[in-house]
């Protein structure tokens, strides 16, 4: 463990670490507590937006201070996660809707539009 970090940097890193992991934990609690699948889709987005963001900012501050140069490669993970999680969530929500419709689950919104229009491709 590096002890040669100034106190202000340690406090900043600690703040962002706990913010990020706390939000991720709240999201995970949501995945356990919320009742239906469509409600649970919202839960992991807490962890993938400011949850990931907080920990990446903490990591950037920590390595920039200890290595005494700007370390920004965490931006790549941030960009990657923001672009990819919506894709997964969209595909999952559509798959869930498709399965619910084909099994005739109640409270599923109706199917409007011709079948070949049923995709954003």
């Amino acid at each position: 463990m590096n002890a040669d970090l100034p106190v202000w940097a340690a406090l900043l890193v600690a703040f962002f670490l706990i913010l990020g992991s706390g939000l991720t934990l709240i999201g995970a609690i949501g995945a356990v507590r919320l009742k239906s699948f469509y409600q649970r889709v919202h839960a992991p987005t807490l962890g993938t937006t400011w949850g990931t963001g907080g920990i990446l900012i903490a990591s950037m501050i920590f390595f920039s201070v200890t290595k005494e140069r700007l370390v920004l490669h965490e931006v790549l993970i941030a960009a990657f996660v923001t672009v990819t999680t919506p894709v997964t969530l969209m595909l999952l929500a559509r798959a869930a809707l498709y399965r619910d419709r084909s099994e005739g689950v109640v409270d599923t919104p109706g199917f409007d539009g011709p079948p070949e229009d049923d995709a954003l491709d």
Binding site: L5, P6, A9
Partner: peptide
């Protein structure tokens, strides 16, 4: 000092 702050924050997170 900063070592303790950092260690406890990392452990907690």
């Amino acid at each position: 000092m900063s070592g303790i702050i950092l260690a406890s924050a990392v452990t907690l997170s």
